[in-house]
């Protein structure tokens, strides 16, 4: 993940305040004023001093309860909202200073977004909805039809392309939303609670589908959810938000093992840590161990049987053929047994 190249999205001290005169208010705002205090002043802090980077090919999941500012933050990334303070750079350009023309160009060529309640145009067929972004950038009819059919196939809606959104189920409608966001082959893919409006079985199926797509496409993804299990399933890194601020931004393993704040700890309390924590994060650098090596991508849960039956005190860990060091047995057992 940390490939050393510049981040795709780089967000520095971003603020988004709603109210009568947000810019003026932000100037007078003193350091460390809380969400409640700001609200008492008559303003709502949608995003509060957020700094984070999204790297190429990474899936960052932003997670928080409703009203925590996660949707607002992602809308700042695509400048659907203007930020009140700070800077947001996409591939090195400050998007806040882009003129409208170039912003539209950026969205037409680089960004795709999927919405919670799909945001489909009711008067257009599936095909016309998917081809919509292509039509907007002026592609000719045949080219956009071919491309739209390609993505419709990709999301498994072949044969439904002449249907209207109201004739489709929720899951199918979201497939249309996904296909539309992929039509322009975006580099950056925003998904705003894409599966929240679906019932649990369909949600699970769509997550699998989504992982399959991501395996194939390898996009840079910002994914929003309020469902922690979903976040753990999908994320390379998770940013947990509360009252507009990011409480912690780290890998799922670290969030579970070392919650940064009390809020995060409460969030992770009920999680089956053994399924989240992987061998690679339990490695002690420099330590060595003998015998059969275990894979760094194995979760503690995967290793449970071995941890109990294998007499060794430490295990060598390798990932992709590279030796990472050794994992002490006690550390893994702690995760396995000491869950609460």
């Amino acid at each position: 993940m940390s490939t050393g190249t510049a981040p795709v999205i780089s967000c520095k001290n971003a603020w988004k305040i709603f109210g009568a005169d947000p810019k003026g208010y932000l100037k007078t705002l003193s350091e460390g004023r809380s969400f409640e205090e700001i609200r008492a002043d008559g303003y709502i802090a949608g995003v509060r001093d957020v700094s984070l980077d999204v790297h190429k090919g990474e899936m960052l999941v932003i997670m928080g309860l409703s009203g925590s500012g996660k949707s607002t933050l992602v809308r700042c990334f695509s400048r659907l909202h203007e930020i009140t303070g700070g800077t947001i750079e996409v591939e090195g350009t400050d998007i806040g200073s882009l003129p409208e023309r170039e912003l539209i160009e950026l969205r037409r060529s680089k960004m795709g977004m999927v919405f919670q309640s799909f945001g489909l145009l009711p008067h257009r067929t599936v095909l016309e909805n998917v081809a919509f972004p292509l039509e907007m950038r002026g592609q000719d009819k045949h080219a956009r039809r071919d491309r739209a059919m390609e993505v419709i196939k990709l999301v498994g809606l072949e044969g439904r392309e002449e249907y209207f959104p109201r004739e489709l189920s929720g899951g199918q409608q979201q497939r249309v939303g996904i296909a539309r966001s992929l039509a322009i082959e975006p580099d950056i893919w925003f998904l705003d609670e894409p599966f929240s409006a679906l019932d649990p079985l369909i949600r699970r199926e769509m997550q699998d589908e989504f992982l399959r797509l991501q395996e194939m496409l390898g996009k840079t993804i910002v994914f929003i959810t309020h469902d922690f299990d979903e976040a753990l399933r999908l994320a390379d890194r998770i940013a947990i938000m509360k009252d507009g601020a990011v409480e912690q931004c780290d890998t799922p393993d670290q969030i579970v093992l070392n919650p940064a704040t009390e809020y995060v700890r409460k969030f992770t309390e009920d999680i089956d840590k053994a399924r989240v924590v992987h061998a690679r994060v339990l490695v002690e650098a420099g330590a060595t161990a003998e015998g059969l090596a275990i894979d760094g991508a194995a979760s503690v849960h995967d290793m449970a049987k071995m941890l109990i039956t294998d007499p060794r005190d430490a295990f060598p860990v390798t990932e992709n053929g590279v030796a990472l060091g050794a994992m002490p047995k006690a550390k893994a057992l702690d995760v396995l047994l000491d869950q609460r």
Binding site: R108, F115, G119, R180
Partner: peptide, 27 residues
């Protein structure tokens, strides 16, 4: 017109005129 439809239009790279013609009025 639902805000998500509007945002979907914007993210599809609509200009203002395209927004009105293809998104707002049909919706």
């Amino acid at each position: 017109v639902s805000p998500e439809v509007v945002e979907a239009g914007k993210m599809s790279g609509c200009t203002r005129l395209q927004m009105l013609r293809h998104v707002y009025i049909p919706s």
